[in-house]
Simulated scan of single mutants.
Amino acid sequence: MTEPGQLALAPAMSDALARWLEVEAGTRDRSPHTIKAYRDDLVSFLRFLGDYHGTPALPGGLARLKQTDLRAFAAAERARGLGARSLARRQSAVRSFLRWIADREGVDLSAALSTRSPKYRRSLPRPLAPDQARQMLDMAGEAHETPWIAARDAAVLTLLYGCGLRISEGLGLDGRDWPFREALTIRGKGGRERQVPVLPVAHQAVADYLRLCPWPLKADQPLFRGARGGRLNAGIVETTMRRARQAMGLPPTATPHALRHSFATHLLAAGGDLRSIQELLGHASLSTTQVYTGVDDAHLLAVYRAAHPRG
């Protein structure tokens, strides 16, 4: 539904947007979450243009776009309270769409595309110390009065820390994935598959949980069950972590995702190389792994010189 004061998208523009999203989903293997975010970004932009110029935006009419149009959009988004990081992502989606429109319509949009995105400082993740991570897993295994649920929580967190999984990846496992082999095949963001070694301690934690779980293990059913038998919700795992971190006096940054950060950082500290850690995490870019582990540029250069055949 269009909000008051906003012009609806013209049918031609709606069609163009739908086709671009299909291209992004099909050829760039974007996740459904990313496609939804892109749709929201572009709808906000195109409706802004309609209000700004007093007439719905049309694909061919985008040839008249100027830097001032994109700057006005950025100013309007900031006035609505959008942060620099979110605005940068939104403008990146807009530029991708405009480049596609330029090719499709044969128009020159170089003036509009030269607009710079706002700078933002990416906050570094805060991993747990190794002893904190071990204590966190121990506390999770003792925190619930129902033995199978306590074993389940310990198994999930051990898997996140021991394999560096995203919480969605861990909770997305099904009965067919058990018993774990030496490595798990994980399908992560963008549909990218990776092989993740399974430590004996993680294998044993899951085995202990399954031995106590009252629900039968079936190939097409979730591996980790909620109290009523459905797939375990990420919010339950987050609550378990919150209670444990409060008991340990840890900051709010000690979340389930921090266990994934801890996995990467502790591997690096133990002598693991960035490229291998990148593969284990399923990152598309080494720069993402660099930020993830808190590696500075000097360390990255040292790794590069040691690994490069002409170093």
Rank of each mutant, 00 (worst) to 15 (best):
A202V: 07
H203N: 14
H203Y: 12
Q204P: 07
A205G: 03
D208L: 04
D208A: 12
Y209T: 01
L210Y: 06
L212K: 10
L212S: 09
L212W: 09
L212T: 13
C213G: 00
C213D: 01
P214G: 07
P214D: 08
W215T: 12
W215Y: 15
W215V: 10
P216D: 02
L217Y: 13
L217V: 09
L217P: 15
L217T: 07
L217K: 11
K218Y: 03
K218P: 00
A219I: 10
A219V: 13
A219T: 14
A219C: 07
A219P: 11
D220L: 10
D220M: 12
D220I: 10
D220T: 15
Q221M: 10
P222Y: 04
L223S: 03
L223D: 07
R225G: 06
R225I: 05
G226K: 11
G226H: 13
A227P: 10
A227R: 11
R228M: 11
G229E: 04
G230M: 03
G230Y: 07
R231V: 05
L232N: 10
L232R: 08
L232F: 14
A234M: 13
A234H: 14
A234L: 05
I236S: 09
V237Y: 05
V237S: 02
E238Y: 14
E238H: 13
T239C: 02
T239R: 10
T240I: 02
T240Y: 00
T240M: 00
T240E: 04
M241Q: 02
M241Y: 00
R242C: 09
R242L: 14
R242W: 12
R242T: 15
